[in-house]
Design a binder for these strands. Structure first.
Lengths: 216, 216
DNA sequence: CGCATCTGACAGGGAGCGTTGTCAGATACG
DNA sequence: CGTATCTGACAACGCTCCCTGTCAGATGCG
């Protein structure tokens, strides 16, 4: 009977039947997507600390059984949500750099604007990437890694823009982290509503700081 | 019997008796201190997300009853721990400014060094103020407020140092937050062990950034 | 239609934690 | 010494949540 249950709930590959016009795989994928959306909604909303498996399922309009069909644990889902946002930010920044001018200042502005745009236009994504991910341990480390990677990208870009004279202070890495960390904290504060300025102001300030410290 | 218990456990003012040579008030205060120390130890250590009332009591070598004698809830204690570290940082920074030179760059360095020194010399304090406080909601807001206040202090100092030409970018507040936030994130990363540099490097980088952006 | 499969609702065991209460032993005071 | 108070260990209740299981009804297939 345990084997029956396994076969019935998990091993869909053997008995694929259409339902509502869609295959078993498609239905499973759709449920998975709904769960991820629910995760973004809950994890990305202030007060979303209480994001529990039951809450995610309720938000998705599914029952717990379908949760464990696609995810091993609550953290597994939330991590996937975080990775999704991070990928989006990274690719947007890279695309912005590709499309941007060759002039240093506009290039920096383009990448920074892409970063800020995504995280402020959909506050849920901003909250996930900046706030919620700093909460519990598995995500905290991942968040640091992501910021670190972004900082390395910034440092390399700076070197490409300004050559040897870039990042005059002791270590590239430290200065880049100082910059990226400030940007992150600033977006965090903006999301909380403590500072009421248009996101462009954030972009302006960050761009100015980048050029002021990188190029001397 | 409920009244008895109340009288016995909470209302120490009526029946103060010496024990081990110390008064009831002193014993209570000592227990409170031990609990706060235990809170700093647990809350300030990586993996301290699991800081529970029982764990704090075990660390302090006390039982739960004495916890509720001094604190209403787990968060009440942790908040007090956070406030303690924040006060320490604030007063250290102010003292550093009072004792410092009149020259802009040394003044900035002194305040930054005080900030970094406290949070890196005792990693538990750093962890409480930077990492753990960003975890759950009541602390997150408080952490933002504290950083915001520190940023305002920085902005005012900058204005005093450089006059009208200080903080050239749009808003003082935004630029100051960008700076303080970067410093916070950098200390956070340092605490995690991801970057292995002496704390002075952090101070150098931050001082350089402050002067490079403030004074132009 | 009859049967296999899918879906949603819900129940229940098990674990962790907060909070209050009980109780025996230790300590000080009359 | 006897009694009142203090202390530490621990039990017990309630709560929330994770996770698995059951079951009736819906849906597609032969």
């Amino acid at each position: 009977m345990a084997a029956e249950a396994l076969c019935q709930y998990l091993d869909m590959s053997e008995s694929a039947r259409h339902y509502g016009g869609v295959s078993a795989q498609e239905r499973k994928a759709a449920r998975r997507e709904r769960l991820l959306d629910a995760g973004l909604q809950l994890f990305g909303t202030p007060g979303g600390d209480r994001v529990t498996v039951s809450a995610i399922c309720a938000e998705a309009g599914l029952t717990e059984r379908y949760f464990y069909e696609s995810f091993r644990s609550r953290d597994a889902l939330l991590l996937e949500v975080l990775e999704g946002v991070a990928d989006e930010v990274r690719s947007a920044a890279l695309t912005a750099l590709e499309d941007a001018d060759v002039e240093p200042e506009p290039r920096a502005r383009a990448a920074i604007a892409a970063f800020v745009e995504i995280l402020t236009s959909d506050p849920r994504k901003g909250h996930v990437a900046m706030v919620a991910s700093a909460a519990v341990e598995p995500f905290r480390t991942r968040r640091r890694e992501l910021l670190h990677r972004f900082a390395r990208m910034v440092a390399e870009e700076s070197k490409a823009l300004y050559g040897e004279r870039a990042w005059a202070s002791p270590h590239d890495e430290v200065t880049a982290l100082l910059f990226v960390g400030g940007l992150a904290e600033l977006v965090t504060t903006w999301l909380s509503g403590d500072i009421e300025v248009p996101p462009e102001t954030i972009v302006d300030a960050a761009t100015y700081q980048f050029t002021a410290t990188a190029h001397r």
